[in-house]
């Protein structure tokens, strides 16, 4: 018991000391060109969802903001630091609300628990189109407990609901805990990076991937920006 406690204190100290010297990467994701116009989604088939949106929402595969910023881009450490095996104990959550996936893109660590809930008054089927991992397809009637799942291998998995074909999202299963999804201004932040040489990858579901190398030497903050080329169609 005592040894366990000592160990715990020791490791906490060790971790915090490494964090003290850790650097971080911040940046912004933008695009050039003209993105295709996002069409509003007609949810008339599912009135209980349609009435949750005062104005019709549009698809979320390309979400842009002011100053050509690009949302929903997953930026992660693809080489350099490998947290293989350090699976966070906390589950990531995925909700179905107003016939939309919240969040649209959900990164997670391999083998991390994934909790999917249904806040709608209608049944959804969750159908992640996994190719590397095991594919599954399950309905979730309203008011039923969350579905919990895990993915063992790295993969970008499109998620869809066949009952509401416009519902579309992504599970991004990574072998690292160093990831972020670009916010409404296109900004992202990867904190707590110990000194070292890293390759960062930015992934967008329609516009592909980009990589950048970055070296962290101490408790510094590096700036890395990504620019994607938009597709008109």
């Amino acid at each position: 018991m005592r040894t366990k406690k000592t160990l715990f204190v020791f490791s906490t100290l060790l971790m915090s000391s490494s964090l003290m010297f850790a650097g971080s990467v911040t940046g912004k994701v933008t695009y050039t060109g003209t993105p295709a116009k996002q069409k509003p989604i007609d949810m008339s088939k599912e009135p209980s969802c349609a009435k949750q949106h005062a104005t019709p929402i549009t698809g979320e595969n390309v979400v842009t903001g002011a100053n050509n910023s690009l949302e929903n881009v997953v930026v992660y450490v693809s080489a350099g630091a490998n947290d293989d095996g350090k699976v966070p104990s906390q589950a990531v959550t995925y909700d179905q609300k107003g016939c939309q996936y919240v969040p649209h893109v959900l990164p997670m660590h391999t083998n991390q628990e994934l909790k999917i809930s249904n806040s709608d008054q209608t049944s959804h089927n969750i159908h992640p189109l996994a190719k590397v991992n095991q594919e599954w397809n399950k309905s979730q009637p309203p008011g039923t407990p969350p579905i919990t799942q895990k993915y063992e291998k790295e993969e970008f998995i499109p998620v869809k609901c066949n009952i509401h074909p416009w519902m579309h999202g992504y599970f991004v299963v990574l072998k690292t805990n160093h990831y972020d999804v670009s916010k409404s201004g296109g900004e992202f932040k990867l904190p707590d990076l110990p000194p070292g040489k890293y390759t960062l990858t930015a992934w967008h579901e329609d516009y592909g991937t980009q990589t950048a190398d970055v070296t962290i030497t101490g408790a510094e903050s590096k700036d890395v920006n990504f620019t994607f080329k938009a597709k008109a169609y």
Binding site: N125, K138, P141, P142, G143, T144, P145, I147
Partner: peptide
Amino acid sequence: TNAAIPGLQLLSQSGAPGGVMTPE
């Protein structure tokens, strides 16, 4: 429709979460 049928989850765990029958 949305009533839980007691014990149904024993027949099919994923087909009847909490005893509520899924469409499949």
